[in-house]
Design a protein around this nucleic acid. Structure first.
Length: 476
RNA sequence: UCCCCCUUAGCUCAGUUGGUUAGAGCGGCUGACUGUUAAUCAGUAGGUCCUUGGUUCGAGCCCAAGAGGGGGAGCCA
């Protein structure tokens, strides 16, 4: 007999049928009631044993965390907490769990403590819900692009080019680092390395995706990226996943439209398909908010916030307009900003937060940034000062998407590379995309974990991955 | 990398102006319990007060350095 996932029992279980349930014990109460969770859903199923017919040895092993197999009939429950339960005919302990050392108790644990037990924390309601929602989002991303005729492209994880010229990279080598081969000038001789040149883990698949767009039309990547930056914040990881669509014959305006449409599609999907998990996280967040001082509490609950984003159009403003709003803002006039507002500066967290959370009170898209603070490949506007870049800013997490229309003119691109000290010989192939059949094209990058953070309401990005990677942390 | 905060039982925390024997809830252990819902009831064990050094008659509490954790900033997604 095959086991029935608990999720299936809740959705289509029939009273009277005999079922086999396998999962992990959450609690064992009153010598009778086993609460079992198998990860398929946040909901537990209650299995009822006949205490007098069950050996003391078995009962002593029904501890939190133990894995069990339960065979019995699905019957109407006599108790009030659930409408049905399993009347146990046969119970097997598959794996014991010593309560003296099992770290997860039937009580609330701090997320910091759970982070030290990353291998067990998916068994908690919170992390379990987050990972199920993460899956829903990942699947939704593929479906969104598939439905629109985009091709899923796998760009290399090991690359020879540092895509944006910014961001520390992780070097990849098979050298014996205790004994590096040196050339005549006593420098490391990369000719002897595996690839015959220095290579690193990718920081972005964008440049490679552009090659895809210049042949397949509309493509997207969805894969891991790596940054060796010493970032210690609640929204940075050393290893994270990025979604990077790249579209041929598309200009910035349409790029922004696709970004907004995608974000809403994904949120809608989670709201529709992850009700149980979302409800739990909503309540969790509400409880957490209660412990904060009133002025720091957010006005909307998690589900309310998601629906709010769905129902409202993102505000689109140019960088110059954003600067004007900031200059005329109360905090600026009262000199509350730590960083002065001046055309040409990069928007700081405090500025973004003011625009999103105080001024517009909804997601915003800022476009046409000064060229001096953006990457070399972005298309230059005719004003000579700005580029066709756009950032989508979300409440709570700030920049969730960064994108642009790409410079398709070969000469303009070369000039810009020279100005910004990007080596043309390293990117000869990228330049050839402009030499042969160049075309307007655009794309953007969505930080997967940041988006999952937003839809789950988790405050720390380290709690939306199974085993997060960040400075000094690769235990698991 | 910078700034701020924290570190007391397995977990979450309390611990008064420096004062003698460091507490609670949950969890553990022993026992009871056939309709419980993070079950409940009775009993019980459990501490390198992060580490090192210092001040003091006396330090969980004060000072210094270090370690670990968190929040914020920068970089960005």
């Amino acid at each position: 007999m095959k086991r029935t996932p608990i999720k299936k029992i809740f959705s289509s279980g029939k009273l009277g049928e005999r079922i086999l349930v396998k999962g992990w014990v959450r609690t064992f109460r009153n010598n009778q009631f086993i609460s079992i969770n198998d990860g398929s859903t946040i909901n537990n199923i209650q299995a009822v044993i006949d205490s007098s017919q069950t050996s003391e040895d078995i009962k002593a092993k029904l501890n939190p965390g133990a894995s069990v197999s339960v065979l019995g009939a699905l019957v109407e429950s006599l108790g009030k907490g659930q409408s049905f339960e399993v009347q146990v005919e046969k119970l097997d302990i598959l794996g014991e769990s010593d309560p003296q050392v099992y770290p997860l108790q039937p009580k609330k644990h701090s997320l910091e403590f759970l982070r030290e037990k990353s291998h067990l924390r998916p068994r908690t309601n919170t992390i379990g819900s987050v990972l199920r929602i993460r899956n829903e989002v990942a699947y939704g991303i593929h479906q969104f692009f598939y439905e629109r005729g985009f091709y899923y492209l796998n760009t290399p994880i090991i690359t020879g080019s540092d895509a944006e010229g910014a961001g520390e990279t992780f070097r990849v080598t098979n050298f014996d680092i205790e004994n590096l081969p040196l050339d005549e000038e006593k420098k490391v001789d990369f000719k002897q390395d595996f690839f015959g040149k220095p290579v690193n883990l990718t920081v972005s698949g964008q440049l490679e995706a552009e090659a895809g767009a210049m042949s397949l039309g509309n493509v997207y990547t969805f894969g891991p990226t790596f940054r060796a930056e010493n970032s210690n914040t609640s929204r940075h990881l050393a290893e994270f996943w990025m979604i990077e669509p790249e579209m041929a014959f598309v200009e910035l305006e349409e790029n922004i439209e696709v970004a907004e449409e995608m974000l809403k599609y994904l949120i809608k999907r989670v709201v529709e398909n992850c009700n149980d998990d979302l409800e739990f996280l909503d309540k969790r967040l509400a409880d957490e908010e209660k412990t904060k001082p009133e002025k720091d509490r957010s006005e909307l609950g998690l589900v309310e916030k998601l629906k709010f984003v769905l129902e409202n159009e993102f505000e689109k403003i140019s960088y110059s307009e954003a600067i004007d709003i900031l200059k005329n803002s109360k905090p600026n006039k009262k000199k509350k900003f730590k960083f002065p507002v001046e055309w040409g500066i990069d928007l700081q967290s405090e500025h973004e937060r003011f625009l999103v959370e105080k001024h517009f009170k909804k997601p915003i898209v800022v476009y046409d940034y000064p060229k001096g603070i953006k990457a070399f490949y972005m298309k230059q506007n005719d004003d000579g000062k700005t580029v066709r870049a756009m950032d989508v800013l979300f409440p709570g997490i700030g920049e969730i998407i960064g994108g642009s229309q790409r410079e398709e003119g070969l000469d303009k691109l070369k000039t810009r590379m020279q100005e910004m000290n990007v080596l043309q010989e390293d990117l000869w192939w990228y330049l050839e995309l402009r030499k042969f059949g160049t075309a307007p094209h655009s794309g953007f990058g969505l930080g997967f974990e940041r988006f999952v953070q937003f839809v789950t309401g988790m405050g720390n990005i380290r709690d939306v991955c199974l085993f997060p990677r960040f400075p000094q942390h690769a235990e698991f």
